[in-house]
Amino acid sequence: MLKEATIETLDAVKQQIRQEGPELFHIEGGQAETLSERRFAYEPANALPMAGFNVARDVAAEKIKATSKNAV
């Protein structure tokens, strides 16, 4: 459903997903807030509420550079 969404239909698709599976979305504020429980594989570029991340941005960037050099 989301893969077929266009810029014109995105809001309607998100609303449908919220109705069919409200547990799929994080709660952004209040006592039931869940954003701070997230754990990312890679460090986000922006400051976000989170429990942590597995790979720092600078380490991930170095791995990308090394991989692209090997691909050439």
Rank of each mutant, 00 (worst) to 15 (best):
D11F: 03
Q15I: 01
E33D: 03
E23F: 07
K63H: 11
Q19D: 04
S36V: 05
G30Y: 12
L24I: 03
R57D: 02
N70A: 12
T67C: 03
Q16N: 05
A71H: 06
N46I: 12
E20K: 08
L35S: 09
E43Q: 15
K69P: 00
E23H: 06
Q19C: 04
A5I: 10
V13A: 01
Q31F: 13
E8C: 00
E28W: 06
I27M: 07
I64D: 03
I17Q: 00
G29D: 15
F53C: 02
P44G: 05
A56P: 00
A51Q: 06
L2C: 05
Q19K: 11
H26G: 04
G29E: 15
F25E: 06
K63E: 15
E8W: 01
A12M: 02
P49G: 10
R39M: 11
L2W: 05
V72F: 06
K69E: 11
G52N: 07
E8A: 11
A5M: 04
P49L: 14
M1I: 10
L10A: 10
H26W: 10
M1A: 13
K65I: 13
P22I: 08
A12E: 02
I7S: 01
N70P: 02
Q19G: 03
N46E: 15
A66H: 05
F40Y: 14
I64M: 12
V72R: 08
K69F: 05
L48D: 09
P49N: 07
R38G: 03
T6K: 02
R38V: 15
I27K: 12
I17D: 00
T34P: 00
Q31I: 04
Q31E: 13
E28D: 13
Q31G: 04
L24K: 07
K65E: 11
E33M: 06
S68I: 15
Q19E: 13
S36P: 01
L24W: 14
R18M: 12
P49R: 13
E8Q: 06
A47V: 14
R18G: 01
K65P: 00
G30H: 14
G30R: 14
A56Q: 11
V55W: 03
Q16D: 06
F25M: 06
E20S: 02
I27T: 10
G29H: 14
E20Q: 08
E4D: 09
A41L: 15
A47E: 15
F25Q: 03
